[in-house]
Design a protein around this nucleic acid. Structure first.
Lengths: 191, 191
DNA sequence: AACTTACCACTACACTCGGAGTGGTGTCAA
DNA sequence: TTGACACCACTCCGAGTGTAGTGGTAAGTT
């Protein structure tokens, strides 16, 4: 088992691209090697089997989807109004949509998790943490809305992103902003 | 190309189960044959190729997810209140969750649609119709809320179902009812 | 009633493809 | 000099597709 960390990360990122681009069906060691531009057989050396690759991809996706400190800092400077929440939600949707392959890979992984208990455990943990962090941040900053509001935004916006990434013509990409705004308007109480 | 319609339907339904159970990766003619309990090679005789099978599965899922006339009739007899909407939404979530393999298959198909224009066309069409029918029904019956409310419920409840079917421990299955109720409370205006 | 046509279930198989894994060699750095 | 890793070649194996072929059955025809 090889240990070069940069190379390992590069392989995992390649796996994410493969997952998004070719689906779980296309995720093979060879495909990862090709995507990463390394010689055939390399991924074999870094991951004991396909399962290990999936689990590590599962962790990595969330790591990359996380907002940076910059976004957090910016949020702290905003007034505690519904308009700010709207802005933050737009930002989040933009950010995630911008890393579309990450979100699609996560969807693929969710479906895989149906059949792989270990992967399910990892994803559940990551998502719970993520959601809880969002709730805590929201409450601590004193933005309008409670924990329930955050959960609802989580639900609505996740499917909005899913829709726009998988079947963009259902709503039309132009309606994204409008729908985000509507979600916030309905879910977050005015202040 | 064989034409026996019952058998064809049985094969497509088998394909849906395979999609849900083993993912797009596992969807092969052989797997479908096994699932349907017919001799190996049968699916080959009914579908020109894997694509055709996917597209037909795409249509079938929606056919089976459709509420029957019974549900429609029941809805018409309800008072035009938020409580009724809540009840209808519970019913819908129950119904879809009850055909979990159908919903999961649809998710798999969505992801496949990313790479298959024809499948994307079929799914987009089905979903637009479906959503529009929901909106029309809602408006015509005079239930509280407008088109926007229906879209929001669509967003939130779809992801709720996704969450419960793929990573049930994130929220816990026990919270489904509560979350549906919360969604309706926030999204549908009181009347 | 015998014949014919058509359809379909079922079987078998040839052929291809692609992946997994392994062992070996070269290379660089400690 | 030794160990770790990149790179490469090669083999084994399983799976899947598509097709050709066989037998049976039902309906229609003369």
């Amino acid at each position: 088992m090889r240990q070069n960390p940069e190379r390992r990360t590069a392989l995992i990122d390649a796996a994410i691209e493969v997952l998004a681009g070719q689906g779980a069906r296309g995720l093979t060691f060879r495909a990862v090697d090709n995507q990463a531009g390394v010689p055939i057989g390399t991924a074999s050396n870094y991951f004991a089997n396909r399962d290990a690759l999936l689990v590590q991809a599962g962790r990595r996706v969330f790591q990359r989807l996380d907002p940076g400190a910059a976004v957090i800092g910016e949020a702290l400077a905003l007034p505690r109004t519904r308009a700010s929440v709207e802005r933050l939600m737009h930002e989040m949707v933009e950010r995630i949509t911008g890393f579309g392959s990450g979100f699609l890979a996560m969807l693929e992984l969710r479906l895989e998790a149906t059949r792989r208990p270990e992967l399910r455990k990892v994803l559940t943990e990551q998502i719970r943490e993520n959601l809880q962090a969002n709730i805590d941040f929201h409450l601590e900053t004193g933005m309008p809305g409670d924990a329930r509001s955050v959960e609802m935004l989580y639900l609505a916006l996740n499917w909005l992103i899913t829709e726009q990434l998988t079947l963009p013509e259902v709503f039309g990409e132009g309606r994204t902003k409008e729908l985000v705004a509507a979600a916030v308007d309905m879910i977050v109480p005015p202040r």
